[in-house]
C-alpha cells in the first residue's frame, strides 16, 4: 500500500509533550504524574492491562478528558489552556474545538455518523470545522478513500460496511483534517480476527508517512512491527519506556513480564 499522507512537510510537526499529568475519577486516581515526550513522526504504542489508564492518557491529549494537574502541549502549543501572566486560563469551547482539528482520533467502536454516507462522514469536519471548500474536501476525501481501499464505498452508509471497512473509513475521516498527531484508541478491539489485518495494514502505511501516531492496542505483534517506541502503563504510571526490543524482549518489571506472558501467545497468530 502506498503512503497515506503524501507531501508531508519536512519541517518537524507533531511533537507531543506531557508534563506531570494527573487525573482522578471521583476518589480513584487513574493517572499518577505522567511525563512523556513524543518526537515528530514518532510511532508510539502504549500497552497495558485494562483499567491501567492508557485510554485516559490518550484522551487527555486532545482534551476529551480534562487533566486535574499537569500540562499537555503539541508543538509547544498548550492543549486546553493559555498561559498568561503566570496563570493557566481555560480556553473557551470554540478554541478547544479548533485545537482538536490538529489531532485526529480513531475510536474502538469507530463512531462513524450512522445517518451520513461514508463521503459525508469524511468531509463533515473539513468543511464545517476547517472551512475548506466543499469541492476541495470531497476531492481529498475520495483520495483518502482510495488509499484505504474503499473508493467504491463513498455512497454507502456505515452500517452497510463490515467492521474493518468502517474502521478504515474512520481512519480516513481522522486524516481528512491533515492532523499533526493521530490517536488510536484500541482500533482493532471491536473487530473480528480476520478483519484486524486490513486495519493494521492501513495504520502501518500511515506509520511510514511521518505523521506522529500514538496507538493504544493489545496487538503485541503489530506493536513490535510498527512501533518506534513502546510504553507500558500500569495503574496510572509508565513503568516501561523503550524500543520494542527492550520492552518486549527484556522487560525490567515483573508486572510487564506477567502481562506479556499472557498476551504474547495469541499475538503470534496474526
Amino acid at each position: 500500500m502506498s503512503l497515506l499522507v503524501e507531501n508531508q512537510p519536512t519541517t518537524s510537526r507533531g511533537a507531543v509533550s506531557v508534563r506531570g499529568v494527573e487525573k482522578h475519577y471521583g476518589n480513584v486516581q487513574v493517572l499518577h504524574g505522567i511525563d512523556l515526550d513524543v518526537a515528530p513522526g514518532e510511532v508510539l504504542v502504549i500497552l497495558g492491562p485494562s483499567g491501567s489508564g492508557k485510554s485516559t492518557l490518550l484522551r487527555t491529549i486532545n482534551h476529551l478528558e480534562k487533566v486535574d494537574k499537569g500540562t499537555i502541549a503539541i508543538d509547544d502549543e498548550l492543549i486546553g489552556y493559555r498561559a498568561r501572566h503566570g496563570k493557566l486560563h481555560e480556553l473557551r469551547q470554540a478554541e478547544v474545538l479548533a485545537q482538536r482539528t490538529e489531532v485526529g482520533m480513531v475510536f474502538q467502536n469507530f463512531n462513524l455518523f450512522g445517518h451520513l454516507t461514508v463521503l459525508q462522514n469524511i468531509i463533515e469536519a473539513p468543511v464545517h470545522a476547517r472551512k475548506i471548500p466543499r469541492a476541495q474536501a470531497m476531492a481529498r476525501a475520495r483520495e483518502l478513500l482510495e488509499r484505504v481501499g474503499l473508493a467504491d464505498k463513498e455512497a454507502a452508509y456505515p452500517r452497510q460496511l463490515s467492521g474493518g471497512q468502517q474502521q478504515r473509513v474512520a481512519i480516513a475521516r481522522a486524516l481528512a483534517l491533515e492532523p499533526k498527531v493521530v490517536l488510536f484508541d484500541e482500533p482493532t478491539s471491536a473487530l473480528d480476527p480476520e478483519l484486524v489485518t486490513e486495519v493494521l495494514d492501513v495504520i502501518r502505511s500511515l506509520a511510514e508517512s511521518g505523521t506522529t501516531l500514538i496507538i493504544v492496542t493489545h496487538e503485541i505483534g503489530f506493536a513490535r512491527d510498527v512501533a518506534d517506541r513502546i510504553l507500558f502503563v500500569d495503574a496510572g504510571r509508565v513503568i516501561e519506556d523503550g524500543t520494542p526490543e527492550q520492552v518486549l524482549a527484556s522487560p525490567r518489571h515483573e508486572r510487564t513480564k506477567a502481562f506479556l506472558s499472557k498476551v504474547i501467545e495469541p499475538a503470534f497468530h496474526i
Binding site: R100, G104, F107, N111, A129
Partner: peptide, 15 residues
C-alpha cells in the same frame, strides 16, 4: 450514542 458526540468533539465540529 455518546460515541457520536465524542467523535464530533474529537473532529472539532462546532457546537
Amino acid at each position: 450514542d455518546q460515541g457520536q458526540i465524542e467523535a464530533a468533539e474529537a473532529l472539532g465540529i462546532p457546537r
